[in-house]
Amino acid sequence: MKLKICGMKYPDNILEVGSLLPDYMGFIFWEKSARYFDGVIPDLPKSIKKTGVFVNESTEVILAKAQKYDLQAIQLHGQESVEFCQDLKNKIDNSIETIKVFSVDNAFDFEVLKPFEAVCDYFLFDTKGKLPGGNGTTFDWKVLEKYPSSKPFFLSGGIGIEEMGAVNEISKTNLPIYAIDVNSKFEIEPGLKNIQLCTDAIYRISTHKQNKK
Score class of each variant (00 low, 15 high):
1 M>D: 12
4 K>D: 08
6 C>K: 05
8 M>H: 03
11 P>D: 13
11 P>C: 15
13 N>H: 01
21 L>E: 02
22 P>F: 00
25 M>V: 00
25 M>G: 01
26 G>W: 05
32 K>Q: 08
32 K>G: 00
33 S>F: 01
34 A>H: 08
34 A>S: 04
36 Y>S: 02
43 D>W: 10
43 D>T: 06
55 V>P: 01
59 T>L: 15
63 L>S: 09
70 D>I: 02
75 Q>P: 00
78 G>P: 11
80 E>R: 03
81 S>R: 05
81 S>V: 06
89 K>N: 12
97 E>V: 05
97 E>N: 03
98 T>L: 12
100 K>P: 09
104 V>L: 10
111 E>G: 14
112 V>Q: 05
114 K>T: 11
115 P>H: 10
115 P>G: 11
127 T>H: 10
132 P>T: 10
132 P>C: 12
135 N>L: 08
139 F>Q: 05
141 W>H: 10
144 L>C: 06
144 L>P: 02
144 L>G: 00
145 E>Y: 09
147 Y>L: 10
149 S>F: 13
156 S>Q: 08
161 I>P: 13
161 I>C: 10
162 E>H: 09
164 M>I: 13
166 A>Y: 04
166 A>T: 05
173 T>M: 01
176 P>D: 11
190 P>S: 02
194 N>E: 14
198 C>T: 05
204 R>F: 03
208 H>S: 14
210 Q>K: 15
